[in-house]
């Protein structure tokens, strides 16, 4: 598998560190109920199909990337910079 980093171009999978599903972007507010933290840290939709997840371009530009891809076929639909996403 290769990922097309918006800054560095088409790069080998080994340059990236994998974190997990997009859920990690939705950190609960301080003081949120425990169930929300559990949801954020542990519970996952874990789809067999389209998933959005977080990759870190460790051996490249050091940017966090939000990748939309298919977990069954390994096809990549899009790669965005987390830093440039509208909040």
């Amino acid at each position: 598998m290769r990922l097309k980093c918006p800054l560095c171009g088409d790069r080998d999978r080994r340059e990236f560190y994998y974190y997990g599903a997009e859920d990690y972007l939705h950190r609960p507010a301080e003081g949120a109920p425990l169930a929300e933290w559990d949801n954020y840290l542990h519970l996952r939709d874990n789809p067999a199909g389209v998933l959005r997840d977080l990759w870190y371009h460790e051996a490249g530009c050091s940017q966090w990337l939000l990748v939309t891809r298919n977990t069954v076929t390994h096809e990549i639909a899009s790669v965005e910079l987390v830093a440039e996403r509208a909040k």
């Binding site: 997990g20 949801n39 519970l43 996952r44 939709d45 874990n46 067999a48 977990t71």
Partner: peptide, 18 residues
Amino acid sequence: GRSSQVAAMAGMRLPIES
């Protein structure tokens, strides 16, 4: 490996990633 799909049939979200 298919636990998340089958659990979702009962409205559950599991602490699992495949």
